[in-house]
Amino acid sequence: MGFWQKDPTPRRNAQMSAPIRPRLRVATGAAVACLALLGLAACGDDAESDTTTGGTTGSQDSSPDGGQPTDEAAPEAEPIRVTIEGDSIDPAGERVEVAAGEPVLVEVTADRAGELHVHSTPEQEIAFTEGTTEHELVIDQPGVVEVESHDPDLVVLQLEVR
């Protein structure tokens, strides 16, 4: 069968008996380096996700004084504000961190009634009326969830659910 045909390129003499030692050395060295690096990164990461499951914020840093700029992730504090006027929607694709399983307040100020589609799993909708509407959103599954308007077709928010 043509498919399995040998590669038709010119070649030097292939030697089967190359020493095995350098290869082993490379393999072990590489494996150790990889494992060490990945292990280090993974450990730090795990601790982080452990604190997230219990805590209220999805902050990267679990320092007690909490001076990091992750306040927007705290659900009670500040609602996520969306302004819809004609064809312009603000924000336009901003990334916001939210905590998985925690309520998040979305405040939509619009010049018309409509809805935003929240592409979480399962999908959700934020229906709004003319004026200001507050909607409480709870997303259980971690991931990046897009909040879209379909009129006009825009990604309004990317919620980083942790």
Partner: peptide, 27 residues
């Protein structure tokens, strides 16, 4: 009206990305 699937993967942490890149370089 949307791509297939709901939520997408979270971004990997910068530490992990760095570790991966350094491992690739070393190897």
């Amino acid at each position: 009206a949307h791509g297939l699937g709901g939520a997408k993967d979270l971004p990997i942490s910068p530490e992990l990305a760095m570790a991966g890149a350094v491992a690739a370089l070393v190897v």
